[in-house]
Simulated scan of single mutants.
Amino acid sequence: MAARKTTQRSAEPVKCSVCHGSGEVSRTVHVGRKRRAVGQQTGLCLNCLGSGEAPAE
C-alpha cells in the first residue's frame, strides 16, 4: 500500500461584508438640537465585533 499524501489547505477566513475586513466602520457625528452633521468617527463593527471575519451562520 502506498502512503497517502496529505495536503494542507490554507483556509482563509471570509471577510466581513460590512467593514470589509478592517473591523471598524465610520459613523457620522451629529451635534446640536437640529442634529447638524459635523464629521465622522470610527467605531467597532457590530457585525463581526472587530475581528474582521464574517460571523458563522
Rank of each mutant, 00 (worst) to 15 (best):
G39M: 01
G52E: 06
A3Y: 05
A37E: 07
C19T: 01
A11L: 12
G23F: 03
G50Y: 01
A11I: 11
S22V: 10
Q8E: 14
P13M: 00
E53T: 14
R36M: 10
V14W: 02
G32L: 00
V25I: 12
P13E: 00
N47C: 09
L46G: 15
L49D: 15
R35G: 11
A37W: 01
E57F: 03
A11W: 07
A11D: 14
G39A: 00
E24K: 15
S51K: 02
G23Q: 01
A54T: 03
V31Y: 04
H30L: 14
G52W: 00
G21C: 04
A2P: 15
A11P: 06
K5C: 08
T28M: 05
H20R: 13
C48S: 05
T28N: 06
T7Y: 14
S17W: 10
R36H: 10
S17Y: 11
T6F: 02
P55K: 01
A56W: 04
A37M: 02
K34C: 11
C19N: 03
R4Q: 03
N47G: 07
M1C: 06
K34D: 15
S22G: 10
T28L: 04
E57C: 07
R33K: 14
E53C: 15
C45G: 08
S17E: 12
R27S: 13
E53W: 12
E53D: 14
V31D: 07
R4S: 04
C45H: 03
G43M: 02
G32D: 02
A54N: 10
V38I: 13
L49H: 15
V14H: 09
E53P: 10
Q40M: 07
V38T: 07
S10G: 03
R33S: 12
C45A: 07
E12I: 09
Q8T: 13
R35H: 15
G32W: 00
G52T: 05
A2I: 03
G52A: 04
S22H: 08
G43N: 01
R35W: 07
E12R: 12
C19S: 05
R4H: 00
G32H: 00
L46H: 15
A3C: 02
T7F: 11
T42Q: 13
S26D: 10
S10W: 06
A37R: 04
E57T: 11
H30N: 11
G43D: 10
G21S: 06
H20T: 13
S51N: 11
E53N: 15
M1T: 06
S10T: 11
S22Q: 09
R33M: 11
E12S: 12
T6A: 07
V18L: 12
V18F: 09
K15C: 05
A2M: 05
G43L: 00
S51C: 09
R33D: 08
V38H: 05
T7Q: 13
S51Y: 02
R9I: 10
A2S: 11
A3H: 05
Q40L: 02
V14E: 14
S17L: 09
K5H: 08
C16S: 04
H20K: 15
K34E: 14
V31W: 02
R4K: 04
G52I: 01
S10H: 12
H20I: 01
V38S: 01
V18S: 13
